[in-house]
Design a protein around this nucleic acid. Structure first.
Lengths: 228, 228
DNA sequence: TTAAAAACATGATAATTGTCAGTTATTCCT
DNA sequence: AGGAATAACTGACAATTATCATGTTTTTAA
């Protein structure tokens, strides 16, 4: 028996929201898929006939801006659902989902989701709560993007990576992103990101071992992220 | 009999989602309030025990960034609900709502909303659809903020104002914002916004009569907003 | 209707960020 | 292991944007 129910359960924090039978039904319809680093799960503009549940690995959700640069809007990790928004509004995907490292995802068909949504008010409310929370986070990102300097945003990005993905046993950030990805999270040119990261290194705020990065002075990073 | 039901109905596009009795119940609990230009409906961090439905006028939803500047995240007009997100997640408000011009709002208590949400799956799904749409828009704003120049964003802002609030009988934008508000929508310094708006005027892209602004060359504005 | 306040405007300058061009380091592949 | 491809880095410079200072116009309110 698969573990796909766990995604749904964890995601919506709603053991009680789905009945056993519903869970079983959703679980029965799932199909599992391996996605290699760099591969696309779905692309912007694609019609989704289901939701992808992240079982392992990390996906970046990004959008191509008219000037040809990718903006990473979100990083999705174990337990997250990809494409839920588009399935709910019955629109094409507004973001693409690309694997940052090797992933395992399972697919839950559109109808299974919609049935539960329409027939189980508790489930619908839980999904609603979850999306409302995403919306709040998006609002926060808007404020950060428009009111903070690149340096502040990069400091925040490292803090975010530590808080959301943790460290490995050697104290390095568990999620390793390329400089280009960091630049795309933060909304700046790759060279600018590289320069600022180098500065952080020189100032002893972070350590780097190859591509691995470790936060060395969390307080100083916090200060940069907040004040100017 | 008030018109508050109309807000709910329009907002959620769900005549069928609420039964007559539910509508009546919601409508009975409402209280109407006049809000003068510049007054605060609710502030960031405030606990909301209900949702405000905009019956007339426009409200700006903004968030104070650590550097002391306001970022306007959204403009809400007739039919919009303010504070719904916070009520759903049972958190304090993450944005403040301030009247841009004189407004009329009605108040729907938290319990009335939550009851309908929990007991009427159709209603919950409609609200879900609506919030999912807001989330998509927020993602778009993130991309615009981080990938476009101030000039592009100001061009977009004027287009947005025309599309969402229309023109008055003389062809001027129906919603008049101060330069400072425009700067706060676009996430830039007031002086920068003023300069660019002056440029637009000189180039004949917009006309201005006092504070009133009219779009004179929509195509050119579109081009600026898209390309560079 | 006027004085005060707020909004608008412009110049000068500094700070931030982007772009282009090129070098070095790493990773990937067979 | 060795060469190609990709990523990381650096410098020089240009473009964008913020800040500060100051003057003008418009609104507001007594």
């Amino acid at each position: 028996m698969g573990r796909c129910e766990n995604c749904i359960i964890r995601q919506f924090n709603s053991l009680r929201a789905m009945s056993k039978e519903e869970l079983k039904r959703v679980s029965d319809t799932k199909t599992t898929k391996l996605v290699k680093k760099g591969e696309t799960i779905f692309g912007e503009g694609e019609k989704l006939n289901g939701v992808y549940c992240v079982r392992d690995g990390v996906s970046k959700l990004s959008k191509l801006s008219p000037n040809g640069k990718d903006q990473i809007v979100k990083l999705a990790t174990k337990g997250a659902l990809l494409g839920q928004r588009s399935v709910i509004t019955e629109e094409v995907a507004n973001l693409s989902a690309i694997a940052v490292n090797d992933m395992q995802v399972c697919f839950v068909p559109r109808d299974a989701i919609m049935d539960s949504l329409n027939n189980n008010p508790n489930f619908a409310v839980e999904v609603l709560r979850h999306i409302a929370h995403d919306l709040k986070e998006a609002d926060d990102v808007i404020v950060n993007m428009s009111q903070k300097t690149v340096k502040q945003r990069i400091a925040e990005a490292f803090i975010y990576l530590e808080e959301n993905f943790g460290n490995d046993r050697n104290g390095y950030l568990a999620l390793t992103l390329s400089r280009e990805d960091i630049a795309n999270v933060v909304g700046t040119a790759t060279e600018s990101a590289i320069r600022i990261i180098s500065d952080f290194k020189k100032l002893g705020l972070i350590k780097a071992y190859g591509k691995k990065v470790a936060i060395a002075d969390r307080k100083a990073l916090d200060d940069i992220a907040k004040g100017s």
